[in-house]
Design a protein around this nucleic acid. Structure first.
Lengths: 374, 374
DNA sequence: TAGAGCCTGGACAACGTTGTCACCCTCGTA
DNA sequence: TACGAGGGTGACAACGTTGTCCAGGCTCTA
């Protein structure tokens, strides 16, 4: 992972999973000597330099820079002049060390490139901005180890708070951090084995309603294609699917369900399988946006019309023929709610962890209203 | 912007545009007293605490934590034990102050929620990760002031480098920073008034090819709907459009062009206008993904078929009727290339600023091959 | 005129870490 | 026994900022 040929070699952020201290265990050879003293920060001027040039004390410069009272207009002018002349900019690293707050929060999600997480991330950023904090992002790529590595690196940076979309299902490694005062909110999926704030969509209810919708339009054989049930959202949606069928007195056939398939090729195969055979499904419920998109492609190649309801809204869904009926969740609202709770934790106005469930919305556009064709 | 009712009040990151020092000018009343001494970082243990507990010197703890040689197995064991018992984690803020590198880079883009920037951002993150650095993201919302504010806040944090998708067209404010050693790469659009690394798509060539494609299919009256020409990409695409028409000897009518419209309502109106009147256009070239999506909706409501080529690929474009022909750019490649150049600057292996242009690709799917219907 | 009180400014320590350097101990050799 | 070499260890300063505290000069009043 580390590029040993590079001479840019900052502190290693990779934290071995077995190790909570944030220390490196990489071989000595990948390390480089420190930058020479005097070249740090490319020789940026400090407050001391400004003070010398303005002929005032160090603290006076600090006062001017921070807009603190107690400096005459004339002194302030001299200081400003020196600041301008030297191109001084306050070093927030030192400030952070002194003040104990970093004014930054961390967001660990699955994949920044996923259209579902973009709006979520942006919403978190906006709330952070409103509170004067910057946002540090990281993608876990659905890998629990990488999630932990990222989270602990952020803790070592002493971010004030964490918004985490969990990849793993055990977050006890965060206990010491939370105890030490790192505000933490889990989004989209709950935390594992620890008591923490959680903001999720009503995955169960949404999936159940989506499948009920298909049943209401006459379908009895309904397929389900979703992610690995070890992912909480996937499991909940599967549970909603099962519940809807059971409530309607429809026994579920194993051949209708495809779990844990995620790459397009396997999704295609799974869809084709449940659409063939002696008792093919007449409708499909898809467990997330990526699966939906792939299944749409498969259905476009079918002669017989097959009904479809997907979890997550997708762009242009209304322009397809037929329009795609979906169970939509509000990604931005998830992010916003989570971030707001985070800052309320930091305020101290929020004390007991809570689980918040945001409603989903069924959007009918045609594909979910097709009658069964058998 | 600052939430004065909140008791979480970290250092203000908003930097007045007229002021380069990073100091605050907000009214005194929004400030709070410092956290009480002793409560900083929620009372996290330091190396000193670990040293005391293990009965060793401070420096020995540092050595163990950093995997430096020269510690006996027995001493190391005692230190590790103390680390474990106290839940110590190294404070990277202090480390950063001492070492002069932050192992983080900043990415300022327009909107994290835009499907074009998600993959770009992810690509930058991956490269950063490979170099052991974290990524701090910020959205400028296409506001030059906000861009500058963000960039300078990141500089105050002493990020090692910056990847910037400019919103403004004057970046002289970055000169002192670059001189001070902050690596900088501009992506998607060039920097204004400074000499810096730039990675862009071939906006001119892509647009020209797209419009040529329409001309090759018999169109003579071709509309253009794009963003404000003050945005470099928009201007380049407009230039490509004009060039293609001129090369074909087709005089351009003002009524065919709609510039600077960006919100869906105005895009709709602009499209309808160029589709009505005595000499309606028979084809439209759209300047970016958002405009394309809106125009698709308008065209879906038209009885007469109108050809369409859009800049930027969009998801599901192949499943629409007809499929949408686009000029695609590779967002991930833009991000990757930029980030790699950034780290080469930090290496010192990259000395002179360069302009890199990545090719675009015309993807024909049907909408661009419709013949003119007049 | 003296004392009180305010305004301005600066010296100093502290935040938690790392680099430098010197110390001590052990071991091997003269 | 004395001495040098070398490995393990810790004291100390420094990174750049901010909070505390105090000094000196001023104004105002009794």
């Amino acid at each position: 992972m580390l590029d040993a040929t590079s001479s840019y070699n900052p502190m290693d952020l990779r934290i071995p999973v077995a190790d909570r201290t944030g220390h490196r265990t990489v071989p000595e050879t990948t390390r480089r000597t420190d930058r020479l003293p005097g070249t740090r920060y490319g020789n940026r001027p400090t407050m001391k330099d400004v003070a010398a040039r303005a002929g005032v004390g160090l603290k006076t410069v600090s006062r001017v820079v921070n807009g603190e009272p107690g400096v005459t207009a004339e002194t302030e002018r001299r200081v400003q002049e020196a600041i301008e002349a030297l191109g001084f900019r306050r070093n927030d690293s030192a400030r952070v060390l002194r003040k104990g707050r970093t004014a930054s929060i961390g967001l660990v999600l699955e994949d920044l490139a996923d259209p579902f997480y973009g709006p979520l991330s942006r919403a978190v950023e906006e709330v952070a901005r409103a509170h004067g904090a910057l946002l540090i992002n990281g993608s876990s790529a659905e890998d629990p180890d990488r999630e932990q590595e990222l989270v602990l690196a952020l803790c070592a940076r002493r971010v004030d708070g964490l918004v985490v979309i969990p990849a793993g299902d055990d977050h006890r490694y965060l206990e010491p951090e939370i105890k030490a005062g790192v505000a933490t909110v889990f989004v989209d999926r709950p935390a594992g084995h620890i008591d923490a704030d959680v903001v999720v969509s009503d995955n169960f209810g949404g999936a159940r309603d989506g499948v009920r919708h298909l049943i209401a339009h006459g379908h009895r054989r309904i397929g389900f294609i979703g992610d690995m049930p070890r992912i909480h959202t996937a499991a909940e949606r599967l549970r909603g699917y099962r519940t809807a069928l059971e409530d309607a007195g429809i026994p579920v056939a194993d051949s209708w369900m495809s779990l844990g398939v995620t790459d397009p090729e396997r999704v295609r195969r799974a869809a084709r399988e449940m659409l063939s055979g002696p008792e093919p499904v007449t409708a499909i419920f898809t467990g997330n946006n990526r699966v939906t998109v792939t299944v749409i492609r498969v259905l476009a190649g079918q002669t017989r019309p097959v009904a479809l309801v997907g979890f997550d809204d997708i762009e242009l869904a209304d322009l397809l023929q037929p329009g795609v009926t979906v169970v939509a969740q509000d990604a931005a609202a998830l992010g916003r709610t989570a971030a707001e709770r985070l800052f309320r934790q930091l305020d101290g106005t929020l004390l007991t962890p809570e689980r918040i469930e945001l409603p989903t919305r069924l959007i009918t556009r045609g594909s979910g209203e097709l009658p069964p064709a058998d």
